Simulated assay, not measured.
Amino acid sequence: MNSNILQDNINQLALLAAVIIVALTVYVAGKYIKQMKTEKSEGVLAEENWDGIGEYKNELPSGWAYTFLGTMIWALWYWTAGYPVNAYSQIGEYNEEVAAHTKQFESKWASADKDTLLAMGEGVFLVQCAPCHGIAGDGMGGKAADLSVWGSAAGVLETIKNGSKGLGYPMGEMPAGLVSGDDAKAIAEYVANGMKGEQPAAFATCAGCHGPDGKGQGGMAPDLTKYGSPAFVADVLERGKKGFIGTMVSFKGRLTPIQEKAVGTYILSLSQGE
């Protein structure tokens, strides 16, 4: 970043405008103060008056007219040839630096091993997630979602019992208690096991939204085949979610893909006791 403010085009424009405004203010104020001392009001009064206060039918002062016209010309130039279309922008420079750093970060950690992802994910989790979900990810007694069961059959059972809302899928929110008992347990085990093995008959209830293969019918509903993987967590992070204590904002653009993978790896480790 440039330390000399005079090398910044925006600062130069601001300083130039400030000088012009001060000069015009001093000139106009001095001119009219002088007139107030030496001249008397004259001319034809308009017919309208307000509580006995009339107004002269004087022509618009040329200085005002030229200033107004100059302001319009300045505005047109400012938004077309000047800033922000054709000039330096501190915000633009910042965004370029962030994009360059993100690209470097993604390249550096593209092949990070699991231990590295766990460490990285824990750091992000403690800053971004723990304030609502708790340091242990247990949701602090029901105040937020219990992440310590995500990726396990217990997590699927919890979703079946309580439903799921706020992810913004076209198929809408999942109501609570669509199945129960042994049927719910069978579905939970099937999904948590990567949807391998014989599909429970009760899964037909889920297939109405998630599709017979559980892949979410092209984005209409969550892809259950991702359950238990960092990609499943990343999908929630990017979509945001309505919870018990408020709305979790989307982290899309706030976290890089590697960071999302790291957070997912760490969260899933909570249910595995790693």
Rank of each mutant, 00 (worst) to 15 (best):
L167M: 13
G155Y: 10
K165L: 07
K114Y: 08
T102N: 15
A65H: 02
T67C: 04
G92P: 06
T159L: 05
L178F: 04
M174E: 05
T116Q: 14
S164F: 02
W77D: 00
S111C: 00
T116G: 06
A81T: 07
S89I: 04
L69A: 14
K108V: 08
N95I: 02
Q90M: 04
K143W: 12
A144Q: 08
G168D: 11
Y78M: 12
S152Q: 07
G82I: 03
T159Y: 00
V127D: 15
C132M: 13
G155T: 06
P84N: 14
L178W: 01
S148P: 02
W64T: 12
G166I: 07
G134T: 09
A119R: 12
D113W: 09
G70C: 11
M171F: 12
V124Y: 13
T116A: 13
M171Q: 04
S164R: 14
P175R: 10
L118Q: 10
M174D: 01
Q128N: 15
S107V: 02
Y83I: 04
A153F: 11
I160Q: 07
L118N: 07
G141V: 10
A119C: 00
D146H: 05
I135G: 14
M171I: 09
Y88A: 10
G166K: 09
P170S: 10
M72F: 15
V124H: 11
G121P: 07
K161V: 01
F68I: 10
A110T: 10
T71Y: 08
H101C: 00
V124A: 13
H101V: 05
Q104N: 08
Q90L: 08
G139Y: 10
A87D: 14
A136P: 01
M140A: 11
F125T: 05
Y83P: 06
M174H: 04
A65S: 11
G92Y: 09
W77C: 05
K114E: 15
T116S: 11
P131S: 12
E173I: 00
V127T: 15
S111K: 15
S152W: 03
W64P: 00
G142E: 09
L178P: 01
L118T: 09
P84E: 12
A65P: 00
E93V: 07
A130T: 09
L117N: 07
D115I: 02
K114H: 13
P175D: 11
T71D: 01
L126G: 02
L178I: 15
F68W: 04
G92C: 12
A130M: 06
E97A: 12
C129D: 07
A75V: 14
D146P: 01
G63D: 10
L147G: 11
T102S: 05
P170H: 13
A119I: 02
E106P: 03
A119K: 15
N162K: 14
A110S: 15
E173D: 15
T67W: 02
M174Q: 13
